Computed example of a mutant assay.
Amino acid sequence: MTGQPDQQEPVLCIDCDRPVHTPQARARRIGAKCWRRRRAEDRKREAAMAPTLPTMPMPRRAAQSGEALFNHPHEHQEEVRTDG
């Protein structure tokens, strides 16, 4: 076997059994089209398994008085309970 492309042994893709031509495809024994399909499947699988960022609920403070903004919410509720 010499370095000339015409004299090399044919290498078949392990997925579709078609001959591969590029040096990269010959080395991995997977054709270019099958390689792109495998990579797309891998990216899709990784995206499905990737953790999503949790959403943090934003506190609504527009209806509170200015004094309540500086107090801890539980302290404010206790004060209201003791008055009644």
Rank of each mutant, 00 (worst) to 15 (best):
2 T>P: 01
54 P>I: 06
57 P>I: 01
82 T>S: 01
23 P>I: 02
7 Q>F: 11
4 Q>H: 01
7 Q>M: 09
40 A>E: 10
72 H>Y: 06
72 H>T: 04
74 H>E: 12
57 P>S: 08
35 W>N: 07
5 P>H: 03
67 E>M: 07
34 C>S: 06
28 R>C: 05
26 R>F: 07
10 P>V: 15
58 M>H: 14
28 R>W: 03
66 G>P: 02
46 E>V: 11
53 L>H: 14
9 E>D: 06
78 E>M: 04
39 R>T: 14
44 K>R: 07
73 P>G: 05
20 V>M: 06
64 Q>G: 08
38 R>G: 08
41 E>L: 10
30 I>M: 06
23 P>Y: 01
28 R>P: 10
74 H>Q: 13
48 A>I: 15
72 H>F: 09
48 A>P: 09
30 I>T: 05
77 Q>R: 01
51 P>Y: 14
34 C>R: 11
16 C>G: 14
81 R>Q: 00
38 R>H: 12
56 M>W: 13
81 R>H: 01
42 D>A: 12
7 Q>C: 07
15 D>N: 10
12 L>Y: 12
38 R>S: 13
18 R>H: 13
2 T>N: 08
76 H>E: 10
75 E>Q: 09
34 C>P: 06
5 P>N: 05
35 W>T: 00
44 K>C: 12
84 G>K: 02
72 H>N: 05
32 A>F: 12
60 R>Q: 01
43 R>S: 07
45 R>Q: 07
70 F>V: 15
73 P>S: 13
77 Q>S: 02
76 H>Y: 03
22 T>Q: 15
49 M>A: 12
69 L>F: 08
11 V>C: 01
21 H>C: 04
39 R>E: 07
